[in-house]
Design a protein around this nucleic acid. Structure first.
Length: 499
RNA sequence: GCCCCCAUCGUCUAGUGGCCUAGGACAUAGCCCUCUCAAGGCUAAAACCGGGGUUCGAGUCCCCGUGGGGGCACCA
């Protein structure tokens, strides 16, 4: 469609009104990919013209999330750049200059309506167009300026033609035509002198020389207005792309605040800032996000950020709304965990053990744990529950767990004792030296190998599932293995005495 | 209500008029492997919203329905 061969200048332009969503992450990602692929610039612009909804700290969380994902920007409020400032409230005078220009050209006007009278109707259905009843529309510029200088409150509105139509173009969706009669005289500048989105986005994108504007489909309804503003200013438009929004996991509508909260209770989240704590790799989140609404071909699904930079294309975007699928995120997380260098994985799981209260002072042991956990984790936060026992000095298995299936306490005690003797007597201890003898022991006692291994698993890990028992015992070390078996024997002795 | 967008398995999707008996992935089920759990391998079930056109031929193009989504603020 319009794959750029020239360097693309793209922007991600969020408003700091709350926590950063998955959908924003994807929009940022697509912009980033286009910039990196073409050797262009990725710009972060903060759209903070709504002072009422401003949330302190939102900007910080946003930046932190983007950096966590690996999406670094070339120009932005913190790093500066040649097209600044990058925070819209700091660009107020710029917008006012162009607004005045529109007024002098007759394409906008001062509106003194005390409140939005036309829109006061109770529902959108019965609402009348503002322009049908606004007296300000017919004021001369001199009259309007006089009222302004007397301090009368006012806004600036776009003068929308009653007749005709406008066609705007989306690179993915094609042309979109709308009758002007269905549009209205939208506010461009609020009574506090700050612009609304529609004006600011046009001016900023033009001044910042944005070549491709990727934003979600929520902007489609006001897209024609933006086209009109471009025309009024006499500027060329960037290439527009409006990917569809994300739907709730059940596919019924977009995420509401209530939905987000409900999700949190299930241990899931659509807030970028939560994914790290939930044990997800940024690599996996990127891979997953990229594929909701974009695909490469009929078979390739595993992508790193580098791959995506190389393979991404606007042509393969899908215009249809898509439901969020969390189980697929788990799948990708597993894939990326397994793809990691085990030393890297060790580094990444360490904080999760520490948060769970374990002291990790043996890096060599951590490395071995990482290796055994690598194929067993969907998310990193599972590490402590799966392998916390490695860091405990003392463990206390459930007494009943030490008794084998369909076995008595006596038989289990005998088995435990024989296992202890066998392991203690081995010249050296490893899977090679211990596996077969333990199996032979099971046969000798008329048991299954599973009885022997099951006992060891419970005695050493207190868990009914664990990494393979020989790997586990190697990491724990023979000395501690024997100690734990001894404890288990003592426990079993107590059980037999009670019988 | 008005305006706009969208429409292939439960979900994400491949498909750009014949390569489609519609492919892949997640999830689900079964089997194999196996000391538990995973990972891995194999298999199964599972879709072109409906109706009209256009064409020798339609999942693919057009129209109309229907369904889903979004928007209708001095929010972005």
């Amino acid at each position: 469609m319009t794959q750029p061969s020239q360097p693309a200048r793209v922007r991600f332009a969020p408003s700091p009104t709350g926590r950063t969503h998955l959908g924003s992450g994807r929009t940022a990602l697509y912009n980033y990919l286009l910039a990196r692929q073409t050797g262009g610039q990725f710009i972060l612009r903060i759209e903070d013209t709504d002072q009422k909804r401003y949330v302190p700290g939102a900007e910080e969380e946003l930046m932190e999330s983007l950096r966590w994902l690996g999406l670094d920007w070339d120009e932005g409020p913190d790093v500066g750049g040649p097209y600044g400032p990058y925070r819209q409230t700091e660009r107020k005078s710029i917008y006012q200059k162009y607004a005045r220009q529109l007024i002098e050209n007759g394409q906008a006007y001062y509106c003194f309506c005390p409140t939005t009278k036309a829109e006061e109707a109770e529902s959108p259905q019965q609402r009348r167009q503002h322009r049908e009843l606004c007296p300000g529309r017919d004021l001369t510029l001199n009259e309007a300026d006089a009222r302004r200088s007397s301090g009368e409150e006012h806004v600036i509105r776009f003068r929308m033609p009653f007749e005709g139509s406008i066609t705007v173009s989306d690179a993915m969706r094609g042309d979109i035509s709308v009758e002007n009669s269905t549009l209205d005289d939208y506010i461009l500048v609020k009574s506090n002198g700050l612009p609304v989105y529609h004006l600011a986005v046009v001016i900023d994108d033009h001044l910042m020389e944005i070549t491709h504007a990727i934003r979600t489909s929520e902007w489609l309804p006001t897209f024609p207005l933006h086209g009109h503003i471009y025309n009024a200013l006499g500027w060329d438009q960037p290439i527009w792309v409006h990917p569809s929004i994300f739907l709730k996991p059940d596919g019924k509508g977009k995420m509401s605040k209530r939905d987000s909260e409900a999700l949190l209770e299930e241990g899931k989240s659509i807030f970028l800032g939560d994914f790290k704590d939930m044990g997800y790799l940024p690599e996996a989140v990127v891979n997953w996000m990229a594929l909701i609404g974009w695909s490469y071909d009929d078979k390739t699904e595993f992508f790193t950020l580098e791959n995506l930079i190389e393979k991404f294309s606007l042509e393969k975007l899908s215009p249809a709304p898509a439901a969020i699928n969390f189980s697929k995120l788990d799948h990708f997380n597993g894939l990326h965990i397994r793809e990691l260098d085990s030393t890297d994985l060790a580094k990444r799981i360490k904080p999760y053990f520490e948060v769970a209260g374990y002291t990790v002072d043996d890096e060599d042991k951590l490395q071995q744990i990482a290796e055994t956990l690598q194929v067993r984790m969907a998310t990193l936060d599972e590490a402590p529950e799966k392998a916390g026992f490695f860091f405990k000095d003392e463990i206390h298995p459930e007494p009943e767990s030490l008794i084998g299936k369909k076995m008595t306490a006596f038989a289990s005690l005998e088995m435990a004792t024989r296992i202890y003797e066998l392991i203690a007597a081995l010249p050296d201890f490893s899977e090679e030296t211990a596996n077969q003898p333990l199996r032979d022991l099971a046969v000798e006692l008329g048991l299954k190998a599973g009885h022997v291994f099951g006992f060891l698993r419970n005695a050493i890990t207190t868990q009914k599932v664990s990494p393979p028992i020989f790997e586990t015992m190697t990491i724990v070390g023979r000395e501690k293995v024997l100690e734990r078996i001894e404890n288990a024997i003592a426990t079993l002795e107590k059980l037999t005495q009670n019988d």
